[in-house]
Design a protein around this nucleic acid. Structure first.
Lengths: 208, 208
DNA sequence: GCTGGAACGGAATCGCGTGTCAGTTTCGGA
DNA sequence: TCCGAAACTGACACGCGATTCCGTTCCAGC
């Protein structure tokens, strides 16, 4: 199950490489012109290959967008699970730090390249029902993850005992979502946005 | 400029009525099957009219989706501005009540008919750049509105003096957005979701 | 009832993009 | 150097759906 277990001839490697390039090119096209507005020919032309070649690597147009999304989802979940286990912290201060770290990771992915949120939030849901469901699944997954962080905090007593973990998780994720969308227009506000989000989380908005 | 100033023959009224029906039918189709998957013929068939007739009322397919969105946006801004001026309240308690009222209005619009958020958030942004910009404008408008509420609260002293009004507004709107999206899967959680949102706003999540 | 003009319907047109396939090129091994 | 398999290419077939257009129907006014 290691990555070197497969038989990798020279040709095989070339093939995988092109496959990767096609996915990247498709991502570029879909994010820039939109899924419906880009033809297979556009993707192929961008790579300087004939569009017939495309079909040697992917079943059809619908097939590749799944791979593109796979790729993005993988990148995101990777960044999130990398160094931030829900149970790695035990005080509010540590929790705050951890959330800042997570916020930064997400900010890097979403803010650095607006094409990521554009594709994931603006293009993908309109492709078809199945893709819309996939995006909703992603939200559910994120909610479960955030829930885990919150539950842990409630158990250790540094978060409100009466916290409605499930729904609060969705509210927090909503704020993150809002940040991602804002970054489409004003990428430079990222940091301030992220800080404001954390202030709301920890302090609320009311005067003391 | 009153609504009765126009010359309204019988035929004229019939025409306006059919126009309305076409908009409604288009909304149904776009929200259910998606914009790209519905043909003009689908909209026409749903009304039992020939699809040629459609073109007597709207320029083209792109034209009508603008009208559909106009309609929804109008409904939403109407509900928001109706009975809730930003400066109508002067204490935190009143403010809480007002936000509960606004949440309820929004819940009614988004929660009662999932097709509304589905069209606005899932279908529309993927239609083309211009429509995506429209939706972003809508977010900006909402942010400005929420900002006004927050500013007012800061001025009167019942909200934190050091509140980053702009970015906090976007964070709060993000939570609302999250609620709207959740309602696509679990409409019954609406109320709890809305309550959790307000708890986060006013109390934060940390233990006292 | 008749008539002229507006509204309607749906067959026909048109353009576009997906997916196929047969001919061509590339390349590793003998 | 030569051979055969695999990869590549792009002209083409095809279907689909937006838009047009003209023959038909409807209806208000006379």
């Amino acid at each position: 199950m290691t990555s070197s277990a497969e038989p990798v001839s020279r040709a095989e490697r070339k093939k995988q490489e092109l496959r990767r390039e096609i996915i990247d090119a498709a991502f570029d096209c879909f994010a820039e012109r939109g899924y419906h507005a880009t033809g297979i020919a556009d993707v192929a032309t961008r790579l300087g290959i004939g569009h017939g070649t495309f079909y040697r690597y992917f079943q059809n147009k619908r097939d590749i967008v799944d791979h593109v999304v796979d790729d993005l989802v993988g990148r995101i979940t990777g960044a999130l699970t990398a160094e931030n286990a829900p149970d790695a912290v035990s005080t509010l201060a540590e929790y705050r730090e951890q959330s800042a770290r997570i916020g930064e990771s997400l900010g890097r992915i979403f803010g650095e390249d607006p094409r990521v949120p554009r594709l994931l939030l603006f293009e993908a849901p309109g492709i078809d029902r199945a893709m819309a469901e996939r995006i909703l699944d992603l939200f559910d997954l994120a909610a479960a993850l955030t829930s885990a962080y919150l539950s842990h905090g409630v158990e250790l007593g540094y978060l409100r005992a009466d916290l409605d973990v499930e729904n609060t998780a969705r509210a927090i994720n909503g704020m993150i979502l809002g940040t991602a969308i804002s970054s489409l227009r004003t990428p430079e506000a990222q940091a301030a946005q992220s800080e404001a989000l954390r202030r709301v989380m920890y302090d609320g908005i009311a005067a003391r």
